[in-house]
Design a protein around this nucleic acid. Sequence first.
DNA 1: TCATAATATAGGACGTGTCATATACATGAC
DNA 2: GTCATGTATATGACACGTCCTATATTATGA
Lengths: 192, 192
Amino acid sequence: MSLDHAILGFLQYGPRSGYDLKALFDLSVQHFWPADQSQIYRTLARLTEQGYVAMDRVEQEERPDRKDYRLTDAGREALHEWLAAPPPAKPGRSAALVQVFFAGQLGDEEILAIFRRAADTCRAGLAGLQAIPDRCTPYVAQVDDPRETFCWMLTLECGIHMTQAHLAWLESVIARLERGELPIAKEATCTR
Amino acid sequence: MSLDHAILGFLQYGPRSGYDLKALFDLSVQHFWPADQSQIYRTLARLTEQGYVAMDRVEQEERPDRKDYRLTDAGREALHEWLAAPPPAKPGRSAALVQVFFAGQLGDEEILAIFRRAADTCRAGLAGLQAIPDRCTPYVAQVDDPRETFCWMLTLECGIHMTQAHLAWLESVIARLERGELPIAKEATCTR
DNA sequence: TCATAATATAGGACGTGTCATATACATGAC
DNA sequence: GTCATGTATATGACACGTCCTATATTATGA
């Protein structure tokens, strides 16, 4: 249910169209809450039904008409309520760790390859995160509120911090594997 | 598609029923890939259709009949292929970070409360992770393969490492907030 | 001129996960 | 004696997200 709140969150800065919102997601929160375009439009429609947002059709001559959505009082209230409430606490899923868990089957080189690849992905992700501030300076200037900016930067900081920690762990595993610390599998086949 | 592979992964240690599998998930991989009971049964049914697993009905007198599933050659092959392939790389979602991103709206104490609560959740999670080795020693003894155990422990290590890093970040944020480093919001209302 | 990118919205189909609920039998606790 | 708990499987309904495709219009550049 968190796409709802992210949308409400963006709308508190002023009216936005579905298109605007998609751009905002891609620009700012995509690294911890990516949003699908069609999902945004559908959610917007539902949020309107529920009375959390209201829509104004804006006729444009140069471009297709846009629908601007704005927060209603009910929406603002719902957002505030959710922001102040305990976090949903959904356990994250990591397919990469599932791979590691069952990697014992693989050969030494294959296991090393998994971790080397993971480290590369991680480094690429880190680079992506570090590029975010530049990309969103215009938006920061637009809203121009040090308190908001502080909170936004915290999420970035968290992402970078976590990615660095992950990378450090991956590198420590790679080092151990390269030192030959990976045990050899037992010969015997286990049935139960 | 990763529940499929986790199930195939467990089945490589020997035949298991849906009930067994649910217990295994809860015991070992639930912190990075939780599995729903009904989802396990449905996946098992599909995997059978697809020919990756085969089912043997075991009649029991004391208890309801069980269906034991075992890996077919096709299943073993599919598993190996997936294990050795590049990781799916699905971006993780964090509702907690969405909260932080839009927390600028809240009062100082509310924001502090969010982080304190997050830190508590984190500490509880850490305690949960550290309790895993004890819970699964019987299973470790059952399979008794140092290579497998090594990989399993790596996933745990990753979880603990990441959780500690997260906690450290949360505590650094809390310290900054307590030092009063949270900027005050602008008075002016921003519309666009 | 012709293609393509950008602006703007919408809907179908599907995969995956979640929740609730149902059935059936056994054992041990109170 | 019954009530909860553990073993064991199954299904319906639904929420949420993803992918793909369709539709218009305008601006840009090759």
